[in-house]
Design a protein around this nucleic acid. Sequence first.
DNA 1: ATAAATGTTAAGAA
DNA 2: CTTCTTAACATTTA
Length: 244
Amino acid sequence: MPEGPSIVILRDELARFAGRKATVSGSAKIDYARVTGRKVRAFRSFGKQFLVEFADTAIRVHFLLFGSWRIDERKAGSVPRLTLKFANGELNCYACAVRLLDGDLDTLYDWRGDVMSPQWDPALARKRLRAMPDALACDALLDQDVFAGVGNIIKNEVLFRIRVHPQSLVGALPRGKLEALVREAHAYAHQFHEWKLAGTLTRNLLAHKRKTCPRCDIALKLQVLGASRRRAFFCSRCQVRYRA
DNA sequence: ATAAATGTTAAGAA
DNA sequence: CTTCTTAACATTTA
């Protein structure tokens, strides 16, 4: 279920386990012997991926659409795909894809592409967008190589805020709109993070899952769009469709 | 009850 | 060998 900011929240909630030895188990088909009993160096997030970093390997957890987790609790009736037990508590992950990664996370990932990372690089994102002029705006925002951590909610909210129609061509966007796309993807991901922490995200959504446009009050469109085939909520009056 | 949803990946087709 | 499309996966909510 989570987009990038939710993984950041998970990561931060686990701070008290960092530096401690973990007993690792679960139903995921990984080589537990490689990590169990070892000390967790850090909990990290890259985009929608949750990373448990050890000295020379890492566990990568992706929660896909339906995944969930509990800290110091277990979910009734579910077998954890991954459990990390510490002397002072535990983490249980459910319905997620789990893999072991070899090597250094700082070389495995390009952190400049993660909207939640301090290393986020807007100029690089603009460059990557310029390299995909035929893509639709709705697909570009979901492209994890350009905007790691952006999911469908952030996509819809960003396009609404910058008044760009989801089917606009990236290559047809005026310079200012392309800049706004990159700026807002970053800014809104952080806004999402704050609202999620405060428990007020849903009430603050302007387009996603809404029926009417909060700006002009006409009915919002709901269409499944793009190569990504995800739901797009948008206002056909406020949001301009830039075509070739 | 059936569908749809904050998503990705592997396999198969072209 | 690429590149594209489809299916599979999994859980909760409407």
